[in-house]
């Protein structure tokens, strides 16, 4: 029962805070959006704990909330946007139709998926599931190649940040 209460709290919190990022009244100032998104990441990491993904829950907080969102907030502060620079948010009928269509597709997808997966509860996980041990074993054996490839990806991202954002390159 406790698990269910936790699930509802965490899921509700995650959805509410994520919606606050996107909805114009709150999300108008990107700083509020960013703070709300950090909260959302914490709620989602709680859901990860319920899914016995402890390592991922820690990484979620460390990398998403701790690194990525700090970068976002840093950029928001750096730009220090005035109301004029934020620009007027435009509301068109095309957008309204888009929102309706996305919502309809989402409702349909949820119905299909829940009827497909049924209401059978998840079974108890094996010992060792979700531990650093289990993750490391996969990461450094089966998935060694993509792991090495990610190093190139991060290098590319560093180059990109320098090339695109540095004031003077040479």
């Amino acid at each position: 029962m406790l698990e269910q209460i936790l699930f509802w709290l965490l899921a509700g919190g995650a959805i509410l805070t994520a919606a606050m990022v996107v909805l114009p009244p709150v999300g108008r100032n990107p700083l509020y959006g960013a703070l709300s998104l950090i909260l959302s990441f914490f709620f989602i990491s709680g859901l990860y704990v319920l899914l016995v993904a402890h390592v991922m829950a820690v990484l979620q907080v460390l990398v998403y909330a701790g690194a990525i969102m700090v970068l976002f907030i840093f950029v928001i502060m750096l730009l220090n946007l005035s109301d004029k620079e934020l620009g007027q948010s435009r509301k068109t009928t095309a957008q309204f139709i888009g929102v309706l269509a996305v919502s309809a597709i989402a409702v349909k997808a949820i119905m299909v998926v829940s009827s497909a997966t049924g209401s059978k509860a998840l079974m108890a996980a094996d010992a060792g599931f979700g531990t650093v041990d289990g993750l490391a074993d996969l990461l450094f054996r089966q998935f060694l190649f993509p792991f090495e490839l990610v190093s190139i990806l991060l290098l590319v991202a560093v180059i990109g940040a320098v090339v695109l954002a540095k004031r003077r390159l040479t």
Partner: peptide, 8 residues
């Protein structure tokens, strides 16, 4: 890797 390089 491909896409991010191309964006840049």
């Amino acid at each position: 890797v491909m896409s991010i390089s191309i964006y840049i």
